[in-house]
Amino acid sequence: MQPLAYCYLFKYIIIGDTGVGKSCLLLQFTDKRFQPVHDLTIGIEIWDTAGQEAFRSITRSYYRGAAGALLVYDITRRETFDHVSVWLEEARQFANPKTVVMLIGNKADLESRREVTTEEGRQFALEHGLVFTETSAKTAKNVEEAFVGTANAIYTAVLEGALDLKKETCGVRLGSLYGGYRQTDPALQSTRDPLYVRYRDCC
């Protein structure tokens, strides 16, 4: 175990309807090594909300202080896409206005059962100023890109000064250059504790 040097710690939240594969995405991602972005080591702390969708009032707290939100729907279930606007409204209401939201159409490996076209997803993202991609937690397609893409967008916001690092609620914390320590590798440190990741047979 070695102390990890990283410059930034980004806080993410994963949201979306029940069963769209939020935990699977997270698992798939944390199984891989996280590529440093811009030669900087960026750690991420991920808050998974899977299974807690019914407890809206208390879980709202997750939004506060999130730098990035991955809004996931299932391309094989139209209704999960229909609810995206509700999730977005909630995120906009309770998160920092600067929170980077990435729209993710998951289960892209199930092409034959597709109910939401890529174009629809892209269009929605365009209209609402979101980053968009389609992923497959099963084949790992685009999973890393989704997390890294969001990290890039946040990092850009930091560079442009759009995120005020002095504010706790911006979701970005300075890392070990300022005395922080991590004991695992950067991808995993987010999940200091299984509280942040869930191991379930959902895939």
């Binding site: 320590y181 991590r182 200091r192 509280l195």
Partner: peptide, 14 residues
């Protein structure tokens, strides 16, 4: 482990 007090205060809810 460079987590904020806020993260800790949310633990019981989680």
């Amino acid at each position: 482990q460079s987590l904020s007090l806020y993260s800790f205060l949310l633990l019981p809810m989680q």
